[in-house]
Design a protein around this nucleic acid. Structure first.
Lengths: 136, 136
DNA sequence: CCTAATGTCTCTAGCAGCTAGAGCTTCAAG
DNA sequence: CTTGAAGCTCTAGCTGCTAGAGACATTAGG
C-alpha cells in the first residue's frame, strides 16, 4: 500500500492534486491507516496514471470522468469513447489552427519593428489596429 | 460619448468584461453621467480595441498592462515592447509544438480503435499507458 | 524511549479571466 | 407617463489546480 506521498511520486501528480481529484469524485475514497492517512493500492495508481495521461492530452476533467465511467463498463460498445476522443482531436486541431495564425501575426509584428522609440513601434501600432483574428 | 453598452458593441467586448478591466485597472475610470452611468470617449475605444487585440493574440493581462504603460511613453525605446512580444511568440511556438504532439497521439489512438467494446478499446488502453508527452 | 524532522490531515482562500445573477436605479421610446 | 431595456453595485461561480494555516502521524537517529 502506498501513502499519498508515494502515490504522488509514482504517478508524478502532486499530493494536493490527488486530494482534489478525490474531492471532485474522480478518484474513489481510499482506505485509511489507523492514523487516518490515505492508503492506496495498485488500482489507484492505474487510475491516477489514466487521469494524468488524459490530462496531458488536454481532456477536460468532465470528459475524463466519462472515460473512467466507460472504462468500468467493458461490455459496452466503445463508440462513446471514440466520440469523446474525436471531439478532443477536433478541439486540438482548432487550437493549432488558431495558434498558427497568432504565430504569423506575432512574427510579422516583430519583424516590422524598427527598434526605435515606442512612438514609431510597429508592435504597438499593430496592436492598436482592429483585430483580424477571431477570438477563441 | 458612448455608454458602456455602445462601447461594448463598438469594441466587441462584453459589458461585464469592460467593467472588469476597469476594476483591475486596465481601463481608467470613465466620466459618469448625471445618473451615474459610465460615459466613454474615443480614447477608451482605442484602448479597449488594443486590449482586445492583444488578448486575441494570447497576451496575458499583466503583459497588456505593461504594453499599455509603454504605449503612453512614446519617447522610450521600444526594446521592452519587442521583448514582451518575442516572449509571447516563444510561448505560442511552444504551445503549437505541444499541440502537434497531442494531435499525433490522439490520431493514433483513434485510428487504432476497432470500434468494438470498451474492453478492447485502444483509446482506453492507450490512456491507461504511462504517458509519453510532458505535461504543460 | 525520546526527539526532531518530515509527512499527512482538514479547511480556507487564491490564481486567471472572465461570466452570471440578485436587486436596485436610470434612461429612452411611445 | 409608463414600460422595458440598459445601467448600477455586489457577490459568487467557473476550471484545474496551488498555497497556506494549524494540528496530528510517522519515521530515523541518537
Amino acid at each position: 500500500m502506498l501513502t499519498i506521498g508515494k502515490l504522488s511520486e509514482a504517478a508524478a501528480v502532486k499530493v494536493p492534486t490527488i486530494r482534489y481529484y478525490e474531492q471532485i469524485g474522480l478518484l474513489p475514497e481510499p482506505e485509511r491507516s489507523a492514523g487516518n492517512q490515505r492508503l492506496y493500492g495498485a488500482r489507484a495508481l492505474d487510475r491516477l496514471a489514466f487521469i494524468r495521461h488524459a490530462r496531458t492530452l488536454g481532456f477536460a476533467l468532465e470528459a475524463i470522468r466519462d472515460l473512467l465511467r466507460l472504462s468500468d463498463m467493458p461490455d459496452q460498445p466503445c463508440a462513446v469513447v471514440d466520440e469523446i476522443a474525436r471531439r478532443q482531436l477536433t478541439a486540438v486541431n482548432a487550437r493549432i489552427a488558431r495558434l498558427l495564425k497568432l504565430q504569423a501575426e506575432l512574427e510579422r509584428m516583430i519583424a516590422d519593428c524598427a527598434h526605435g522609440t515606442v512612438a514609431s513601434c510597429k508592435v504597438i501600432e499593430a496592436l492598436g489596429d482592429r483585430c483580424a483574428i477571431e477570438p477563441e
